[in-house]
Nucleic acid binder design. Sequence first.
DNA 1: CTGAAAGCGCTTACAG
DNA 2: CTGAAAGCGCTTACAG
Lengths: 342, 342
Amino acid sequence: MPGTARRPTLAAVASAAGVSVATVSKVLNGREDVAPGTRARVQELLRAHDYGGRVSGLHRHPTIELTFRGRIGSYSAEIIQGVAGAAADLGAAVAISVKARDDHSSHLTATQWARDLAADGRRAVIAVTDELGPREITALARMQLPLVVIDPMTMPSPKVVSVGSTNFRGGRAAAMHLVELGHRRIGFLGGTAAAECNQARLQGFKAALEAAGLPVPEEYVHAAGDFMYENGFEGAPLLLDLPSRPTAIFAASDELARGVIEAARARGISVPRDLSVVGFDDTEIARLASPPLTTVRQPLQDMGAVAIRTALRLAVGERIDSDHVELATELVVRDSTSAPST
Amino acid sequence: MPGTARRPTLAAVASAAGVSVATVSKVLNGREDVAPGTRARVQELLRAHDYGGRVSGLHRHPTIELTFRGRIGSYSAEIIQGVAGAAADLGAAVAISVKARDDHSSHLTATQWARDLAADGRRAVIAVTDELGPREITALARMQLPLVVIDPMTMPSPKVVSVGSTNFRGGRAAAMHLVELGHRRIGFLGGTAAAECNQARLQGFKAALEAAGLPVPEEYVHAAGDFMYENGFEGAPLLLDLPSRPTAIFAASDELARGVIEAARARGISVPRDLSVVGFDDTEIARLASPPLTTVRQPLQDMGAVAIRTALRLAVGERIDSDHVELATELVVRDSTSAPST
DNA sequence: CTGAAAGCGCTTACAG
DNA sequence: CTGAAAGCGCTTACAG
C-alpha cells in the first residue's frame, strides 16, 4: 500500500470534536480527568478519523493479537494457517502469544496486559477457544481493543463477538452417519462436559438418535474431561468395558477419537470391524491417523479468516451484523467407520 | 517490565556520536546525504543506546518476525510453541507470517518486505526451514534486521545465523537402533534429496551401517521429494516392492514414516511385525500414530527458544559466538520397531 | 473538567 | 556532507 494518505493528527480530531488537542491527548492516554461525554465524543472522532496515534499509526500493517492457551497442536496450526493467510491478503500482521493453561492473571495484570497490547500497536485481539476472563474483557474494552473469540468453550457473553461452527448439526451428522450404517448401540465421548461446543455436539448426537427411535442410555454418554488424546485413551474404557458395549462411538474431537481407537486396539477390538469411531475437527490428526478418521470437519482455517476480517472491521469502528458467526460443519467419511459386524 | 528506563533520545545519541540531531535523524531515516563513516558511527551508537527509534522504541516489547513457508502442521506448531513460550519469558512479542510455498518475490518486493518489517517495528526475523533468497537476505541486512534460520534446508551461507539439530548423529542413532534389533536389510527414505538436513541424516545412517559391516545397496536409498505424508506413501513402494524387501526403513521425517506405514498396511505388511519403521522429528504425529512411532527427536521447541534468544541478542547488536548452533537429537523408542520376525 | 502555554523529540528545507 | 533553525505533533503541569 504505497502512497499512504496523510496521517491524521490530534489537531484534526480536536477541531472536529470541538475540543483542544490537550483533551484529545488525554483521552488517547487514558487519563482520568476527562468528562465521560467528552471522552465518548473524542473516541468516536478518533475512530472516524482512523486515528492510530503515535503507536499503531506508524505501522504499515495493523496488527492483530492472536492468543492461545495451553498446547499448540494440529488444531491450533489450522487456525494459525487461516488467520495468517487471510492477514497476508488483507495487509494485516498477526502477533501470536501462547499463555500457560493455568495462567490466570490478576486484575492488575489484566489491565497491564491490555495496556501493553495497545502500546505495542495491536488493533484487536483474537482469542482461541477460551473467552478470557471478565477482567481481561473489561480491560480490552477500556483500551478500545475489540475481541473476537474463535470456537468459544463457554457460552460467550453477548458483548463478545465469536466465530464458531455448527456443532449441533455436526453432532447430528456424525450420529446419523452411524445410524445409517446400521449401528444401534452408539456411545458418545465428550471433552469438557461444560464446554458449549461439547454440549451442542452432544445435543445434536442425541437428536439424531432420538429421531431414529434409538435409546440414549446414560451409560453411553461420558465426558473425558478435555479434548486431548490422553483423555480419549483414559475415558474410552467407560464405554469399551460396558457389559453391552457400543458398536460405535462418536468422540467430540479427533484427538479423543484417536485415544479411543488406541484403547480399543489395546483390548483387541479392531476399528472399524468391531468398533466404528467418528471424530470431530478434521485436523491433520484425522488425515494421518491409521485408519484415517471419519470425522466432522470444522472449517478451522475459514474460521480463522473470518475472525481476522471481523477483528479488522471492529478495529476501524464498523458495526458487525451478528455477534456470533457459525460456519458449516461437514461430515468427512474415511476408514474408521463401517457397518457393524453383527 | 514496569518502571521502564528512560527512553533514549536522538539528542543523547547525537552528542555521544559528536554530530547534530539532524544527522542522526537522517541516518535513522535512511537518507542518502550522510557520509558512510558518519553513518557507521551513528548506527553503532544507536545500537549502543538501544535506540529503537520512533517505531520500535514505542513498543513495550520488541517484536520478532517468525516466518514460515507452505503448510503449518505439527512440525510448525512445535516451533511456534517454543518461540512464543520463550518470547513470553523474555518480554518479547512474535509476529507470525506464512508465505505460500511458491511465492518467490521479486527484487522490489524483497526490499519492500524488509522496509515494511522495519516500519512495523520488527527487530529481527526468524525463518523456518528455508533460508530466504539472497535478495531477501540482502534487504534485511540493509535494514539492519538480523536473521536466524531454524532447521535450514540448504547449506546456510556463513553470514546467516542458524539453529539446527544433530542430524548426522540422529541418522546414525536411528540406524544403530535397527541394527541392534537384528535388522540387516535396512532402507532409507529421504525427503528433499538436496536438503542439507536430509543428507546429514542419510550420511549418519550410512555411517552406522558401514560401522556394523552392513552393505548399503543403492536400491535401498531413495528420496521421496519432500517430507510430507503423501511423499512417504508414494515413495514407499520404491522400497516395499523390491524383490528383496528391507525389513526396516528409516524415514527422514515422521510424516514420511506414517506414509510408509500406511503403504505397508495397504500391502498387508504389518508394522512392526513384518517391517520396522523409524521416523524423524518426534512431533505430535509420532506420539499419536498407531503404532506410536519410534523416531529421532528433534528438540523443535528448544530450537525455537534458542532462535528467538539469538535473534534478540543480534537485535541489540551483540556478537554471537557461533553462526550455527546444533541441539542434540535423541532416539525415542516406541512401537513401530521390533526385531525382525524371521 | 478544560485548555493555554511551555516544552520535548523529531524532521526537513536550506545555507554553507 | 553537515548542522542551525523553523516547525510539527504530541504531552503535561498548571491556572481557572
